[in-house]
Every structure is written in C-alpha cells, then in structure tokens.
Amino acid sequence: MKNEMRLDFASLSENEAFARVVVAAFAAQLNPTIEELADVKTAVSEAVTNAIIHGYENGPGTIHLSALLFEDGIKIEIEDDGRGIADVEQARMPFYTSKPELERSGMGFTVMENFMDEVEVHSLPGKGTRIVMLRRFEARDPIVQV
C-alpha cells in the first residue's frame, strides 16, 4: 500500500484536534492498534501546537501537514513558515522552553521522540520549521484490515 495526502490549515488552536483526527483517519488505513495510533496523535498534537504557539506566536499563518503511508508505517511532515528556531539542539533538550512564562513544559520534542521512531527538525530563523516524523506499526493480520 502506498498513499499520500497534504493538508494546509489555518494556525488556530481549534485546528489542533482537527489535524490530529485527520492524521488518525489516514493512518487508520493501516489498521494500527489503539496504542500505536494514540502515539502518532500525541506527536502530531505537539508539533501542531508548537507551530501555532511558537512558529506563528498565536498570530495568523498556515500550517502544512503531509503524510505518506507505506507498508508498515507512516511518515508525517508538519511545517510552518513562522519565526523558526535558532538553536535546534537546545530546543530539543528535555524541559527546554523559550516560553516559561506560559508554563510550558518544554517536553514537546521529547514526547515526539519517544512516541515516534524518527524525528527530524529542520528550521531556519525567520523562515520556518519543518518536523519530519516516522512511525512504524507492528506487522498485523491483513484480514482485519479496514
């Protein structure tokens, strides 16, 4: 199986739940377990929330999401054209947050890394940020495929 989609949506907090379900509905074609899908949804939430809060700083903007299904997993890209990250290594560190005043946990990237098999962060200050995440699902009985 090979399938792909691309979604652009407004950077609004209402759209975080929307983006999560879009990815879930797409990934559901691989008939993952509830756990596997929950992991992917959580990672998507973190990346989309970051784009809204940090990328566009709650201002207007468009978030680009794409997903590619392959035999045993999904690759997801979440991109914003926002302010970007100057020091990606620091940003990925557990507990690091540039907005402590918002009582953010600084654990977004750590969550993505834990719930996905691969996480790449590409960012250019002033240009935007692109997160590429990959998650493999365990082999499953094709009979139960939806």
């Binding site: 008939n31 993952p32 377990t33 509830i34 899908l37 365990e138 139960v144």
Partner: peptide, 11 residues
C-alpha cells in the same frame, strides 16, 4: 500483542 485492540474495533 495478539490481543492488542485494533483501532477499527475501538472506533
């Protein structure tokens, strides 16, 4: 693993 509930059923 073999009892893992599939999304299709939980939905």
């Amino acid at each position: 693993d073999n009892n893992a509930i599939r999304v299709s059923r939980s939905l």
